[in-house]
Every structure is written in structure tokens, then in C-alpha cells.
Design a protein around this nucleic acid. Structure first.
Length: 395
DNA sequence: AAATCGGGGTC
DNA sequence: GACCCAGATTT
């Protein structure tokens, strides 16, 4: 595309810059008209219900569309509006959130609903700056609600936008450094007449065309203007710094009483998996020998190593838990000491009433397996290590 | 600026 | 296995 320079009184770069942006924005919206995704929380143009936009945006943080969809339907059915959510018990909110991760999101969602109900007439503010003040709403979500629900010209910057913009303009520095520039360019590119659709469009482009690996540049509306493509830098841009993980190993204690009920407890309200239900466990950084440091929770109990392992990968932790069981706990002193640590015995049939993390669900699955059900997985790895012969690995 | 906070899809 | 997803909050 040739950019016409039809105004001799303005510097070429300024004029062509603005015209180029208009061209790109127009091309993006045309592409979106034909290729935009239909999603449960989406309409064309501004969305009439900011609550729907809000719930979807919070759920979608660091989460894939496919994962979110069933959670979204369940949540909207159970909590159809701000008032319903505000009046709910936080534990009921967590119950619907279990398995979705980043549980702070659920807590802030609940806080925010209560705040809006009490202080803002149960309605969302429409401006970026007001939205930004709300619990759980940061720069991305403030811009997304403002643009998607109220058609304000506030550009979102998420992983998709970072990728699209940094490739389009050939920005090769680390994204942590170039973020302000990316934000400016995304804002400049934003449509002046179709703000909501622009937001959906640039994210759809990043999700379906300008993908991290093997982007389909041949169908991209920016194909002819993309710096990264022209300079063969698609695989180098964006440059994202990776964080490193630590390895932790620990013990999990599966405790049953005479009735076959299992001991569970509630995690603290801060930190990893906060507020969720768990079986007692403790982990330390390091390797197998570190296990000697862990003796919780009943020093004198007759612990049996089940030989079962559960592995779980968090954002910054690789965790391996070895599962230990007691025989039926009937010693009164042990029982008393255990109850002092905080928790309760619950029937397995009632697990569904408590919010468990995926990690704990793996534990349940491991304990309930007979030890042979994973032979197929073990066989596939039999040459790898002694460990995989010795333990059942649930992953 | 760097660390913390889940879980799952994809390559 | 590595990457990274519609990021926010704390340190």
C-alpha cells in the first residue's frame, strides 16, 4: 500500500504516520468483520451489560478462552448480576472458581461487587481512571471494560496486543522495556469510531493469526506493513524474559478416622491457594533428603508411605508431594492433637461442597487409585528412571 | 524492577 | 518439556 502524501504543509512523516495508522486500523476492523470470533461474552459494538464484560475479563486473565467458557456459563447462571454476587458467600464464589487458578481474582471480584453495590448504586463507572480504582481491576481490565462496554477509546495492552504491536513495528527490545512504547502505539492505532470492536479485533488477531508460534501472516491484515515479517524477525519478537522455577518436595498426610472420613483443613487467607480446602501437606525446597525435615502433623502416628507421588507445576514452583497415610486414627491423644491444628473430618461424598485446588484433586485421584491403574503411564516411561517404577506419578 | 500467584492448551 | 495465555498485586 502506498501512502499518499497530499498535504505539502505538514512533514511527511507526521502526515503519513497518521494516514498509515488510519489505514491499519481500517484494515484490522475489516478483517474483524469477516473473521472475528463469536464468544459467549461478546457482541458486535459496545456490550450492553458491563457485568458480563467484567466477569469474562477477570476470568480470562492469564487463562485461555477454551478453559474459561464453561466457568463463565456456570458463574453467570449462579450470579447473574452485581447484586447477586455481592450478596453471595465468598466460599460459594470459590466453589465455582475451583480449578480456574489465581484465586485472588475470585476474592477481588467479590470485594468489587460489594463495593459497587454499597458505594456506586450497583453500577460500574465508565471511565478508565475510575475503573482502575476498583479491586482486582488493573490497567488492562480498566481499559477493556471502558472500551468493550462503554465504547471509550482506551486501548488494552495484553499478551496479544504486545505481540501484534511489537511485531508490526519491529520492536525488538525486552517487552518490560518497550511496554510504554507499545502502549502508545496501540493507543494511536485505536479506531476513533469503533472502540469496542477495535479492542476485540486486535485481541482476536493476536489469538488466531499473530500467534506466538507459526503465525499465519498470509491472512494478516498487517502483512504488507509488518516490520518483523519484512525483516524476518517474527520468531525473535516479542522478546520475553522468562522467570526461573524452583523445585520443592514435600509430604502430604491422608488421615482417616473410624468412619472413613478424611481430615481436611482450610488454607490461610493469604498466599498460595489461599482460602481453599486441602489435606495437610508441607513442602520444602530441595531434593529427597529434605523430606526428613517434615514431620507434621502427628509425630507419633504410624505413617505409611503409600509410594504414590503427585507432581504439580505452578507458575514458579515444580512441586512433588509424597502421599503418606495413617492407619485408622483412634488414639485419643493423637486425635486431639490433630484437631488442635485446625480442620475437620469430612466424608468423601461431601468433598464436592468444598473448594479444592487441582493439586488436591490429583491427590484424591491418586489415593483412590489401586496402584495399578497407571501402569500404562508407567510403562511409557519405564526406561527413564527408578523413580517412575517406584512411584505412581499423577500429572 | 522483581516476585508472587494456577492451571491447562499447544507446539 | 517449554511456552504462554484477555494480568493484578505485593515487595
Amino acid at each position: 500500500m502506498t501512502i499518499p502524501s497530499n498535504n505539502a504543509f505538514l512533514p511527511d512523516d507526521v502526515l503519513s504516520g497518521k494516514e498509515k495508522r488510519l489505514f491499519l486500523s481500517s484494515a484490522l476492523l475489516s478483517w474483524y468483520n469477516q473473521n472475528g470470533r463469536d464468544l459467549p461474552w461478546r457482541v458486535r459494538g459496545a456490550h450492553p451489560n458491563p457485568y458480563v464484560v467484567w466477569i469474562s475479563e477477570i476470568m480470562l486473565q492469564q487463562t485461555t478462552v477454551k478453559t474459561v467458557i464453561p466457568y463463565f456459563y456456570r458463574f453467570l447462571e449462579r450470579f447473574p448480576d452485581i447484586s447477586a454476587l455481592a450478596n453471595a458467600d465468598i466460599d460459594d464464589v470459590l466453589l465455582l472458581w475451583q480449578g480456574l487458578g489465581y484465586y485472588t481474582r475470585a476474592r477481588k471480584l467479590h470485594e468489587c461487587a460489594q463495593f459497587l453495590n454499597q458505594n456506586n448504586g450497583g453500577k460500574f463507572p465508565e471511565t478508565y481512571s475510575e475503573l482502575l480504582k476498583l479491586p482486582g481491576i488493573g490497567p488492562y481490565t480498566a481499559a477493556s471494560i471502558s472500551s468493550l462496554a462503554f465504547d471509550k477509546r482506551e486501548a488494552v495492552v495484553d499478551g496479544n496486543v504486545i505481540r501484534v504491536i511489537s511485531r508490526l513495528y519491529g520492536i525488538a527490545e525486552s517487552t518490560a522495556v518497550s511496554l510504554p512504547e507499545i502502549k502508545t502505539k496501540a493507543q494511536d492505532l485505536m479506531s476513533e469510531t469503533r472502540a469496542a470492536d477495535y479492542t476485540s479485533a486486535i485481541m482476536d488477531l493476536g489469538a488466531t493469526v499473530c500467534t506466538p508460534k507459526n503465525p499465519d501472516c498470509s491472512v494478516c491484515p498487517f502483512e504488507g506493513e509488518c516490520e518483523a515479517l519484512a525483516r524476518n524477525l517474527i520468531d525473535e519478537i516479542p522478546k520475553i524474559e522468562k522467570l526461573q522455577k524452583i523445585n520443592k518436595i514435600g509430604k502430604l498426610f491422608w488421615i482417616e478416622n473410624e468412619s472413613g472420613d478424611v481430615f481436611i483443613r482450610k488454607r490461610e487467607e493469604a498466599g498460595l491457594l489461599h482460602g481453599l480446602t486441602e489435606f495437610p501437606w508441607e513442602a520444602v525446597e530441595g531434593n529427597d533428603e529434605m523430606l526428613n525435615k517434615i514431620s507434621f502433623p502427628i509425630p507419633n502416628a504410624d505413617w505409611v508411605d503409600t509410594g504414590k507421588n503427585v507432581r504439580h507445576v505452578f507458575t514458579h514452583i515444580n512441586l512433588t508431594l509424597k502421599i503418606f497415610k495413617t492407619k485408622v486414627l483412634e488414639n485419643e491423644a493423637d486425635l486431639k492433637n490433630l484437631m488442635k491444628t485446625g480442620g475437620q473430618f469430612v466424608s468423601k461424598d461431601n468433598f464436592k461442597d468444598y473448594p479444592f485446588s487441582t493439586l488436591m484433586k490429583k491427590v484424591v485421584k491418586a489415593v483412590e487409585s489401586d496402584g495399578n491403574s497407571d501402569s500404562k503411564k508407567r510403562n511409557s516411561k519405564k526406561a527413564k528412571s527408578v523413580e517412575s517404577k517406584t512411584f505412581c506419578d499423577f500429572e
